[in-house]
Design a binder for these strands. Structure first.
Lengths: 117, 117
DNA sequence: AAATATACATAAGAAACTTATGTATTTACT
DNA sequence: AGTAAATACATAAGTTTCTTATGTATATTT
């Protein structure tokens, strides 16, 4: 597990990306998928996820469909048309941001400073 | 400029990294260096930076030295021995986190979903 | 039968920013 | 000479976005 202040700001994009790639998913499934894809390194808490899903539904980036498995409900989320655009924007932005971070972290490497770290 | 929720969680590491590479820097210099290195894409606000520097000094990761340029003071910050260890840890963590994010963002690419984005 | 996993949800609190504001000195422009 | 912009510090109020804690209920495994 990462010291989780890093997740801040990226969770929304992670969720939007998963929904873009998978069509539709329900909340619990998202937590498990992230856990599995990241080899337990990122663990989405339910207290963060559910309010986020509700907010994305309220902003009309996501739409829902409730299904019942026996007596237990499952709430599936999928991207709306608007949500697909939001998703693309956020993902591009995150990729760019990471590139910029790499530039920052690699700046001055190869000068007299920081040769041996 | 990025929609800045992405900066959250990375600012501390950016600052620690700059100090590691540059030996010593003062606050205003840090804001300008980041602006310049990122081609204006990341702009550190003073309201975020100064409290952070104070916190890092309080935790003994940074130590200070005040100099006067004319009548105007400049407060130089440098990593302590502890700060160098913290710095390394945080930078490694951020690099790992970014790798993990790449895995997440690239998951399912090349399957029937998301081929055309 | 009890523990664990599945599945949803909300509330209180903490962390880490932004925005706004303040002070003061120095440099550049007109 | 006077004004604007840049340099350099600082703090406070407010917002966003998480964590931690708690709650409810069903289904599966041991």
């Amino acid at each position: 597990m990462y010291s989780s202040e890093l997740i801040k700001g990226t969770l929304r994009t992670i969720v939007l990306n998963l929904l873009k790639e998978n069509g539709r998913m329900y909340g619990y499934e998202i937590t498990q998928r992230v856990k599995e894809l990241t080899d337990d390194k990122i663990q989405i808490t339910e207290g963060a996820l559910y309010p986020l899903l509700h907010a994305l539904e309220a902003s009309e980036d996501l739409e829902t469909e409730v299904e019942f498995i026996g007596k237990r409900q499952r709430k599936y989320y999928r991207l709306t048309k608007q949500g697909k655009a939001t998703s693309k924007k956020k993902i591009d932005e995150l990729r760019e941001f990471m590139e910029t971070l790499h530039i920052l972290l690699d700046a001055n490497k190869g000068t007299s400073h920081g040769l041996i770290n």
